[in-house]
Amino acid sequence: MIAYYSNLAMVTSAVLYLLAMTLHAAEWASARTAAVAEPELAVVGAGAPSEAPAPPASQRPTPNPRTEALGRTGLAITMIAAATHVTGVVLRGVAAERAPWGNMYEFITTSLAIAVIVYLVLALKFGMRWLGLPVTLLLTIGQGLAVTVFYVAVSDLMPALHSVWFVIHIIAAATSGAAFNIGAIAAILYLIRSRAEERGGLRGYLSRIPSAETLDRVSYRFHAFAFPLWTFTIAAGAIWAQYAWGRFWGWDPKETWSLVTWIIYAVYLHARATAGWKGRRAAIVAVVGVISFWFNFIGVNLLVSGLHSYAGI
């Protein structure tokens, strides 16, 4: 019964994230029309009035009230979705009578719950609502995949997971995963914004997100937080492996890809301090890093068989 409510909460949150994403997309679109008067309005999603008032042709640096309203509504819906999402994760743990991190479904829902909480803190405390569209996009895709592809019913853990390291290793992985993803979003926005700044045509939503320099700094901060934690995740996993399998490193596919991910982020951190690599190249490395992280999470579990294959998926 509890498991049923957990599932219900997860699915609801996925739908709400989709709604929030639509609203943020509408926010971006309306900001675009606000800055440059284009005859054809961009597709406006749910929640937007069908008869959009024709924006004045003048370039306006400040957003129109409708843009603002869309953004605020999107944020409000994200908050409701986050509450539902966290409830879903907690109920899952209650239903399973253990920490809810025993399989891919539980891992991805927990990691995304951490991500959405971090985003809400950033948006409410630090005025970083501009992360709204990419973050809700990530949440929609992630939560959507979780409830459709990765879903497995509640069950006990296999013996290899009976360990305190289960909690330590996985919460560290989920937290650093959340931070890597938000860092990657900032890196992608940096790439878009810095290109726009070079071309000189800062229009629409791009004029409302922070400068490329700030985006780079935000991205760095998330990576600087996530990287030591990721190192710790690997080390904790190695300690656990020593207990469970009698060796701390065995080039299991999951271990290998954790190391590959680690190396890519090490390259990112060094690139930021190297002339010629600073900026765009470093940001691209960060994006490659998050792709590697996702491959390690999904690809290794589904494509390659190894010791980290638990519970089917």
Binding site: W251, P253, T256, L259, H270, A273
Partner: peptide, 27 residues
Amino acid sequence: SMRTALILLLILGIAAMPGSLLPQRPT
């Protein structure tokens, strides 16, 4: 030089990939 270290790091990352995608003798 930092640049060489960066390249070597990248090569190490790429070199580790086939080890996870192809079956390996020791395991």
